[in-house]
């Protein structure tokens, strides 16, 4: 299948007081139509910056794209004019943000916030837009949508607000939905509801999803494919099964080991990854994970590995261990 989105060699930096913070350093990945892809990584790994670069939402300055391209449905988004970009945002790509408590405008009715995009992108009349908005509200599972339409965000609970955000993001039937940590700010029970809703809508509408998260549990719920990011780079990609069953990068392995399981014996301790991520003002010359890696070798210190193919399927890991010359290492 043709790729709908392909990000290649994306570099995004921020100008800061101390110099240049290299938030994203050469990220490449593809999304196929109807596919759900997760981008996983800890805070500061560049996953949100990547997502916001696709939508060109980052303020510039201080941020700027150093190189790379973002091909979306045959066009390079980074080369579009501001005006052309406006017609992509909200229409072809919808976005959901992390904190539903702050991402809705407190002084505008929920209905108005949904119809805004409809009126702009689909040229609907006010009444047609209202009918569509009410339909969307019931689609995302908000009871009594007629009455809810004219309420303000403060009368909505956190979960309801996130549902409303989903309704806004999906209002113009976008081909791609970017969800930037959509469940991080929600209760666990609400998290499951929102994820189920997203999964359900994806099936029904055939929307592709990019899900940004640091929660591996969320990944296993929704996504087909996983991209693991560390220090502004993709360190491993593969299908959900591959990543969970046989993680190939030491960082991914560390992530999975540090996650609690239900079937874990009570006294078994979680194993955290020691150390902290590198300073992105001066990223290391070699592998960025080197200083925290239990398998670090001499080559890792000064040579940055490529994404290397692992096995026959599409799984790839950015680690010297998978280089043909590397000797077999006992896997932990």
């Amino acid at each position: 299948m043709e790729n709908m989105l392909s990000v290649s060699d994306l570099h995004v930096s921020f100008r800061a007081r101390g110099g240049e913070v290299q938030a994203v350093r050469g990220v490449s990945f593809e999304v196929k139509p109807g596919e759900a892809v997760a981008i996983v990584g800890e805070s500061g790994s560049g996953k949100s910056v990547t997502a916001q670069s696709i939508m060109r939402l980052l303020a510039s300055p201080p941020s700027y794209v150093k190189q790379g391209s973002i091909e979306f449905m045959g066009r390079d988004l980074l080369r579009l004019s501001d005006k052309e970009m406006e017609s992509v945002r909200g229409k072809d790509i919808g976005m959901i943000f992390q904190d539903p408590m702050t991402s809705l405008n407190p002084t505008m009715t929920i209905g108005r916030q949904i119809t805004e995009g409809l009126i702009k992108h689909q040229g609907l009349s006010r009444s047609a837009a209202k009918a569509r908005a009410v339909e969307l509200l019931s689609l995302v599972g908000i009871p009594n949508p007629e009455a809810r339409y004219s309420q303000y965000p403060h009368s909505f609970s956190g979960g309801m607000r996130q549902r409303a955000m989903i309704a806004i993001a999906l209002s113009c039937n976008p081909a791609l939905l970017i969800a930037d940590e959509p469940t991080t700010a929600l209760d666990v029970t609400i998290q499951a509801q929102i994820l189920n809703l997203m999964k359900d809508l994806q099936k029904r509408l055939g929307t592709s999803i990019i899900l940004i998260t640091h929660d591996l549990g969320v990944v296993s719920e929704v996504c087909d494919r996983v991209i693991v990011m560390y220090a502004g780079q993709v360190v491993e990609t593969g299908t959900k099964e591959e990543i969970f069953r046989s993680p190939q990068h030491p960082y991914t392995r560390g992530l999975i080991r540090s996650m609690p399981h239900l079937d874990q014996p009570k006294h078994e301790k979680l194993i955290p990854i020691p150390g902290s991520p590198p300073d992105m003002l001066q990223p290391p010359a070699g592998c960025a994970f080197c200083s925290r890696c239990e398998h670090a070798m001499e080559v890792c210190l000064n040579n940055d590995p490529e994404l290397l193919k692992v096995g026959e399927s599409g799984q790839q890991a950015k680690c010297w261990l998978h280089h043909p010359l590397a000797k077999e290492v006992q896997q932990a």
């Binding site: 909200g90 943000f97 505008m108 806004i168």
Partner: peptide, 26 residues
């Protein structure tokens, strides 16, 4: 810099609309 201004931008609204309709009122 509020989140809802970013939301407004992600809807594809024009800069002027975002400032007058969303930001100024708040």
């Amino acid at each position: 810099t509020a989140d809802f201004v970013k939301t407004a931008k992600s809807k594809g609204l024009r800069q002027q609309v975002i400032i007058i309709r969303h930001a100024l009122r708040n």
